[in-house]
Design a protein around this nucleic acid. Structure first.
Lengths: 213, 213
DNA sequence: CTGCGTGTAATGTAGCTGCAATCTTTGGCT
DNA sequence: AGCCAAAGATTGCAGCTACATTACACGCAG
């Protein structure tokens, strides 16, 4: 069905990408470059609504349309209340789906947490820009990803595996202390820019970001 | 039915007002103090969709849900394409309507645009014209397409694949650094015209346009 | 024929990033 | 308290690769 949908979209000059798993979808949603997300409830690695909830918890503003074979009123209410913007039960007419996508795209992303702010540090996930004490500070890609992941949960522990996943999402790498190295480099920059936050290690678990004593 | 709906809303502590005619609805919409508008297609003084179209033409950003007894796919597509954000056919479950209203209210009003302006650069997609610092600058087609794609999301990353698709839509795509070459040429023009914006590469992901430091 | 637009390729370059070697800190244990 | 092993921190280095730029050839339009 996904392929048929892709074909229909392409025929109408709609640019679309397709992945099969929640994990991949999450990684791509993080890029933040999509106008709309179309999601099936049943996916190989879990329940689509969980992804909706996860994205919304992080204040991800992308409009989401959920497709499903589960068509009862309760399912629809659940779907919408989990944070989706529209909910369409199969079977449906392609034309209706397209019209609903147009409606969502027209409306655009929700006004979002444009910035993840904590202490005097602020991260704009859309542009991948970080400013400290009001001035822009350049971070290379990997360092940025680590810092963003930490900033999404200030004051809370982010596990090592989580961080690795955030940084190396689709790729497969790392058999060294590369992550530690990144952390170290980030710390150096934070110090240099006189950030009021610091990154603390939690032995055997991961890291967390918090305000400096 | 409106009265039953009002009662249901009231029972859930949702504040709602009710009018019977398009004229009244338009007047109240002008006040701009509502989170969501619920509209029936058949109204005493006309067709509900006309009001939708009229509001949208004036760039009114309020989310609109259209209710109707007309339930065919074509009706739904028409309704959505006239500018409504959701479309629900009777009969419907009150709970679903409420969930959809919550979804719309959550998302908030749309931002109106259609004129791509950023820094001292402005793009008119209709005429494919670009002006920098107030004066018109000629861009060849491919360069224009790249720049427009970037300007549709100022300050946000546009992925390489997206850019490629934006430029080469259906045509056979490329297998070289043609995109990079375009970017380079665009940059040269931006510099020459003293634009206050610049195009930044985001390693491994794509490009974004932002205001110059 | 001429000029512009565009794809391709060659070349240059910067700086990211993984790795490993070395220090420092931590926490558990006696 | 003191010690030790393991985890974390730091840093230099080298390879790499993605990006930038330029030159060039081809093709199409006027």
């Amino acid at each position: 069905m996904a392929l048929a949908l892709l074909e229909a979209l392409r025929r109408r000059d709609v640019l679309a990408d397709h992945v099969r798993t929640i994990a991949d979808a999450e990684a791509m949603a993080r890029l933040g470059t999509y106008d709309v997300l179309v999601l099936d409830r049943r996916l190989p690695d879990g329940e689509g609504l969980d992804l909706v909830a996860a994205l919304r918890q992080r204040r991800h503003p992308v409009p989401i349309l959920v497709l499903t074979a589960l068509g009862t009123v309760d399912h629809r209410v659940n779907g919408l209340d989990s944070g989706a913007d529209d909910y369409l039960a199969k079977p449906f007419a392609i034309e209706e789906l397209l019209a609903r996508l147009r409606a969502l795209q027209r409306r655009g992303p929700a006004l979002s947490d444009r910035y993840l702010s904590f202490g005097n540090l602020s991260v704009d996930p859309r542009s991948s820009e970080i400013s400290i004490a009001g001035s822009l500070v350049e971070f290379p890609r990997r360092e940025y990803l680590v810092l963003e992941a930490l900033m999404r949960r200030p004051n809370r522990i982010v596990t090592r595996p989580n961080l690795v996943e955030a940084v190396y999402a689709l790729e497969d790498e790392i058999e060294s202390n590369a992550l530690d190295a990144h952390i170290s480099r980030i710390r150096k920059k934070l110090l240099l820019a006189e950030a009021t936050v610091e990154i603390r290690a939690v032995r055997n678990i991961g890291y967390l970001i918090r305000t400096k004593a």
